[in-house]
């Protein structure tokens, strides 16, 4: 879908584009400051300071811990989404997989299954959901956007088929507390701790392994990556399965955290996830981005939401803010590129 938007791109891409690191050493410093992930981190600090000043309870350990816990599912899914977007794919069905997983947890629990059986089963279902996405994308060569718009409806529909409009609550305390409680001796909730571990693993995989290298190559020039012997299809399939698996796991956490299984759990979360990834500086066209940036993006969205909530701003306005952030996050780098290009044009 994104190809269209690059109307002027043939001219730009044919030439060493404005993004190509040139020998203009004098501008290197400026270029560094303009680096998107640095900007986002700065913005994060601004929000943090602004939050502490306007709202006294904001910076308290309790609130921050809550804010982080509230972010858990988005943050987890964002890890898989980062890898997908770097490889120039996208998975819009994650929120629906989360919903399906939640609905399954609810209905199976209601049917008397034990949580120990339910969790692995639900995660396998999530992996299968991802596998379906992946097979449609890799075997048939369909655009992931179209496929996951379809499965977004399909999986959400299945969630409703499973649970209807019922809500299942009353999960035993020992499970619910797993999704809410802090790791003993720290103010860090279990899901956050899990996220930190997974984030480190993802960062290493993305930036320091052959698999990660392959993702960047696939994202910027899939054909060249294929010609270099990279198993493009298999790698993409793995990414989609991973995305489905993580989304299903996030569904379990979501259900236990709120103590409520519903088919419409997590509607619209894909927006927040994609917003976080793009705000984090990952190029929607693939091939560019860092996991550090994404983590900053996730935190930014989380803190902003928390701040709005503390200041009694309604959820509707929160969605406006998320939407605007999403647009700004893709708009700014492009405008910055245009400005940089303009500045360089009057060459001697």
């Amino acid at each position: 879908m994104s190809e269209t938007t690059s109307e002027a791109a043939p001219a730009q891409k044919a030439s060493p584009g404005p993004d190509a690191p040139g020998p203009g050493t004098s501008r290197r410093g400026v270029g560094h400051l303009l680096r998107w992930d640095v900007l986002v981190t700065a913005l994060l600090l601004v929000v943090f300071l602004g939050g502490s000043l306007t709202s006294p309870s904001f910076a308290s350990a309790g609130n921050l811990s809550f804010a982080l816990g509230d972010l858990g599912e988005i943050a987890l899914i964002a890890l898989a989404m980062t890898m997908l977007v770097v490889a120039a794919e996208v998975d819009l069905s994650v929120a629906s997989v989360l919903g399906l997983s939640s609905a399954l947890v609810g209905s199976l629990w209601d049917a008397g299954w034990s949580i120990e059986t339910i969790i692995p089963l639900v995660i396998v279902v999530g992996a299968v959901c991802g596998l379906v996405n992946g097979l449609l994308v890799t075997r048939l060569g369909l655009p992931s956007l179209a496929v996951t718009i379809g499965t977004m409806a399909l999986y959400r529909g299945l969630a409703y088929v499973v649970l209807g409009d019922r809500a299942i609550a009353e999960f035993p305390q020992q499970y619910a507390s797993l999704a809410v409680d802090d790791v003993p001796g720290t103010p860090i909730p279990y899901p956050v701790a899990l996220f930190v571990v997974l984030a480190v693993v993802t960062a290493i995989v993305l930036h320091s392994t052959g698999f990660g290298r392959s993702l960047f190559a696939i994202g910027s020039q899939e054909e060249a990556a294929f010609f270099a012997g990279i198993r493009v299809k298999r790698i993409k399939l793995v990414l989609f399965v991973l995305s489905g698996t993580i989304a299903a796991f996030a569904g379990v956490i979501f259900t236990l955290r709120y103590g409520s299984a519903r088919a419409d759990n997590g509607v619209g979360i894909e927006l927040a996830v994609i917003a976080a990834v793009l705000i984090g500086g990952v190029d929607f066209d693939g091939g560019k981005g860092t996991l550090g940036g994404v983590i900053a993006g996730v935190l930014l969205i989380g803190l902003l939401r928390n701040l709005l909530m503390l200041n009694d701003v309604t959820t509707e306005i929160q969605s406006v803010v998320t939407g605007l952030l999403l647009i700004v996050s893709v708009l700014t780098p492009r405008l910055a590129a245009v400005i940089r290009q303009r500045r360089r044009l009057p060459a001697p």
């Binding site: 891409k13 993004d19 290298r213 960047f216 190559a217 910027s220 020039q221 054909e223 060249a224 990556a225 010609f227 270099a228 990279i230 091939g287 560019k288």
Partner: peptide
């Protein structure tokens, strides 16, 4: 097919 144009010389050679 031959190169990933956005990647550096060393990354292309290593690919």
């Amino acid at each position: 097919q031959g190169l990933v144009m956005e990647l550096s010389i060393e990354r292309n050679i290593g690919l």
